[in-house]
Each structure stands twice: as C-alpha cells, then as structure tokens.
Simulated assay, not measured.
Amino acid sequence: MTGIRLAACAEMLYVDLPLLDRVKRISDRGLLVEIWDWSTKDIDALAGSSAEFSSMTGYLTGNLTEPDGIAELLATAQRSLEVAERLNCPRLNLHGTGLGEGGLPVRPVQVVTPAMWLTAAATLRKVAELGAAAGRTFVLENLNLAVDHPGTPFAAAADTLALVRAVDHPNLRLNLDLYHAQIGEGNLIDLVTEALPYIGEIQVADVPGRCEPGTGEINYAGVAAALKRIGYTGVVGLEAWAAGDPDTALDAFESAFAPAR
C-alpha cells in the first residue's frame, strides 16, 4: 500500500511572486499544486506548466439551498469542470455557500432549517452527477465560524460529513480541513478516523495563525501517524501561510507528514 501524497496551495505561498512562478516552486519540490478561483488565472499558462494539480475551486457563485443560488452553483460548477479538464485536476472544491471578500459568506445564514438540509443534499447530488459525467470529484470543505467564516451554513466538519454521507455518491467527498476543524471541533484523530470512508482530501495548517505545522498547537506528526495507522492513502494539502520563509514552511510540512509517507 502506498502512502499519502503531499500538495501545497499556490495562493498562500511565495506570495511575492507571480502565480506561475509559485506553481513552479511548489512543483519543483515534487509536490502537487492547489489553486483557488480559476477565473482569475491564465489557464493556458497553467495547463502548459509541468505542474500536477490536486484541487481547485469548483464553482464561482451560488449556494446549496436557494433556487437562484442553486442554478448559479450548478452552472459555474459545469464551467469549473471544463477548466479542470484542461488542467487535469481531479478534485473541485465546494463550500456551504458562496464566499466573498475576506472569506465571508455572500449570503450569511444564522439558522439552518431542516428544509435547507434536504435541499442542500439534493443540490449536492446534482453536483456529484456532474462530476461523474466528467470523471471528476467534487469535495465539500468544512470551515470554521469563530475566526474566518462566520455565518457560513453547513460549515462544521460534522455538517459536511453528514451531507456527504446523505448523498453517498463516489463523486462527492470531503475536503477535510483540519485547521478549520481544530478551531470548530477539535478531536482531530477521532474525526479523521470516523470520516475516512468519505475523505477526498485533507488540508492542514496550524492553529492559531494558519501557518505551517509546528507553529501552533496541533500535533501534526501525531495526526500523520494516525493517518498511516488507519490506512489513509490520499492527498494532504498545505493550505497555510508561511510564518517566515516559504521553503522553510514546506520543509516543516513535509517533515510533519513523514510518518504517513
């Protein structure tokens, strides 16, 4: 059985360089590359690079529960799939609702009703079917409400896991972000163990500060050992700011997850 593969987010590292140079720096280290909003990128240049992409944003606008938002989400998910085909990117990332400036929800929600849960599951089933037709997987990311994304519905890891379980489709998985989960819920090793059958990717950063492993409170070497023990063989992506030098941050990331490789 092979171990995990590591990826890094080009949006948050080497931020003083043009995006294509960031992608090259990450790729030259033998890491997969993750990007966010593809609509702001030179897709031809990215497709012509030697980088192997791991994930990208899977929609531009919309949400899971309101008729106009659902239509927007499905339409922009289809456009995202076309870009993913050009980049040969296997996973497309989703959130409980569209995020705007500063990561805040475009349409904040304070109370999620039972009807909204049912509608969200039905919408995600349609998204999964789009993914299946294109041979790609959509991943639903958990977020935190306390620090970064207040007012986002279906934000907690327990919520995203419940939705993915309810849809139960191979082209809809979890993007289990352990930075967000630590802030919102904690108990990370039990969380990855419970979620294992539904995980499409794991993302990491330390708490507080959202920087590389070793800068905060999370024992990522322990998490890595747990991932090896439970047999996780997918991608772990660093979605974090560098506390100092980006190369040093990536060294720390690779060292933390050495037990799982």
Score class of each variant (00 low, 15 high):
Gly30Leu: 11
Leu32Arg: 11
Val33Trp: 13
Val33Gly: 11
Glu34Val: 08
Ile35Met: 15
Trp36Arg: 12
Trp36Asn: 14
Asp37His: 04
Asp37Pro: 11
Asp37Val: 04
Trp38Ile: 09
Thr40Phe: 14
Thr40Pro: 00
Lys41Pro: 04
Lys41Glu: 14
Lys41Asp: 06
Lys41Ile: 03
Asp42Met: 13
Asp42Tyr: 08
Ile43Lys: 10
Ile43Asp: 12
Ala45Phe: 02
Ala47Gly: 04
Glu52Asp: 03
Glu52Pro: 04
Glu52Ala: 14
Phe53Ile: 06
Thr57Asp: 05
Thr57Val: 12
Tyr59Asp: 06
Leu60Ile: 06
Thr61Pro: 06
Leu64Ile: 01
Leu64Cys: 00
Leu64Thr: 09
Thr65Tyr: 14
Pro67Trp: 05
Ile70His: 13
Ala71Gly: 01
Ala71Tyr: 03
Ala71Lys: 15
Glu72Val: 01
Leu73Gln: 09
Ala75Leu: 08
Thr76Ala: 02
Ala77Ser: 13
Ala77Arg: 08
Arg79Ala: 08
Arg79Glu: 15
Ser80Pro: 08
Glu82Trp: 03
Val83Trp: 08
Val83Phe: 01
Ala84His: 06
Arg86Val: 03
Arg86Trp: 00
Leu87Arg: 07
Leu87Ser: 14
Leu87Tyr: 03
Asn88Thr: 07
Asn88Lys: 05
Arg91Ala: 05
Arg91Thr: 12
Leu92Met: 13
Leu92Ala: 14
Leu94Trp: 01
His95Ser: 14
His95Ala: 15
Thr97Arg: 04
Thr97Leu: 07
Gly100Asn: 02
Glu101Leu: 07
Glu101Thr: 02
Glu101Cys: 00
Gly103Thr: 02
Gly103Tyr: 06
Leu104Asn: 00
Val106His: 05
Val106Leu: 07
Pro108Lys: 03
Val109Gly: 09
Gln110Ile: 05
Val112Arg: 15
Val112Glu: 12
Ala115Glu: 13
Trp117Arg: 11
Trp117Lys: 06
Trp117Gly: 06
Trp117Leu: 03
Thr119Gly: 00
Ala121Ser: 10
Leu124Ile: 00
Leu124Thr: 00
Arg125Asp: 09
Arg125Ala: 07
Lys126Thr: 02
Val127Gln: 05
Val127Gly: 05
Glu129Ala: 09
Arg136Thr: 11
Phe138Thr: 01
Phe138Gly: 02
Glu141Asp: 07
Asn142Lys: 02
Asn142Met: 10
Asn142Ile: 04
Leu143Tyr: 01
Leu143Gln: 11
Leu145Met: 09
